[in-house]
Design a protein around this nucleic acid. Structure first.
Length: 312
DNA sequence: GAGTTGACAACCTGAGACAG
DNA sequence: CTGTCTCAGGTTGTCAACTC
């Protein structure tokens, strides 16, 4: 299995365009073998077809001008060429969660065949960095990470190829930390039916991405959505704390597996552009202390509701 | 400027239970 | 019957931290 560390540069309209907000102007990537050694590189400028001026703010970030981009390739040709370069057996890695989505959005704009038709498993190295060196939630810039790890800043930032290269170095620096267990899915194309749904499980954690439902209520009424199966043995756990929400977008629960202990459930409600709803559920084995923490969270949430209403 | 995510707060709505 | 309260659901807006 090879890894394709991908980075894109894009431009945008001054007015904004919901259907096509960003036009990709550069593709940069490095190919790594299974030991994260660089075995290939890719760089390609794209000739813009939609936005003829570089947005002033974008101009400050990327070191490209229209004159240079005129030398680039037509996006569909470049994308095809790039995907051929990627090969057969590979996995995408990016810094942040946007690149794969934008790549697919651009492909769709040019009516190209979709990358996979469903969610795509990828490694978000920015997320890995946060999990390993910070609180797991903050998002740091690539330059911050390079400085933090004392890597050699020998090239400029915000050039697709060099950013891909830096991201690969940052990831390599993480060594055998097993942080890859926290992989991500790009859901530009959510599962359309039961067959396309995603089920994956790891040593102490499992993930489920549901198909698209017409509303949140129907989604939450589905047994597969609210079930809490143990990530290890797959047996249905008994609920200790029913699904509750703090903000109506995230739901939490606690269940108990008689063989493997407590698990925390988390459901995130996601909406599609078309108005449908799908959910991402994670189940994670947790300690007794974590159980107390979640119970407190629920109590706090209930209390807040009461005092607020009393005030009114 | 455009977009993303996550956490959190404020506000609106309707249904059901209960008291007067 | 009206009014109040609780408990759901849903929307919007804020903030911070990123992507280009």
């Amino acid at each position: 299995m090879d890894y394709i560390v991908l980075d894109l540069e894009w431009n945008q309209s001054e007015k904004g365009n919901k259907d096509f907000p960003f036009e990709i102007v550069e593709i940069g990537a490095v190919k790594l073998d299974s030991n994260k050694n660089i075995i290939g590189s890719y760089r390609q400028l794209i000739k813009p077809q939609v936005y003829r001026k570089i947005h002033p703010i974008t101009k400050r970030i990327i070191q490209l001008d229209m004159e240079e981009l005129e030398k680039g390739k037509y996006f569909p040709d470049a994308a095809k060429d790039f995907l051929e370069w990627c090969g057969e057996n590979y996995l995408f890695c990016t810094w942040g969660s946007l690149d794969l989505t934008e790549f697919q959005r651009n492909m769709q704009y040019y009516h190209m065949e979709s990358l996979s038709g469903g969610p795509i498993l990828y490694y978000d190295i920015q997320k890995f960095f946060s999990l390993l060196y910070e609180d797991g939630k903050v998002r740091r810039s690539l330059e911050y990470a390079v400085e933090y790890l004392n890597l050699n800043k020998e090239h400029p930032f915000h050039m697709a190829f060099y950013d891909a290269y830096y991201a690969s170095l940052v990831w390599k620096e993480m060594g055998d930390s097993n942080v890859e267990e926290n992989f991500s899915f790009d859901v530009f194309m959510p599962p359309k039916n039961k067959v396309e749904e995603i089920h994956v499980s790891f040593s102490n954690y499992s993930k489920y991405i549901s198909r698209v439902f017409d509303s949140k209520t129907t989604a939450m009424g589905e047994r597969e959505v609210t079930s809490t199966r143990c990530p290890i043995c797959g047996k249905n756990g008994t609920k200790r704390v029913r699904w509750f929400t703090t903000n109506r977008k995230h739901y939490y629960s606690i269940s108990y597996c008689f063989r493997h202990g407590y698990m925390k459930g988390k459901i995130r409600i996601k909406k599609t552009k078309e108005g449908g709803v799908y959910i991402i559920k994670t189940l994670k084995l947790i300690s007794k202390e974590d159980v107390v923490e979640i119970k407190e969270k629920r109590m706090k949430c209930k209390r807040q509701g009461r005092t607020k209403r009393h005030k009114d």
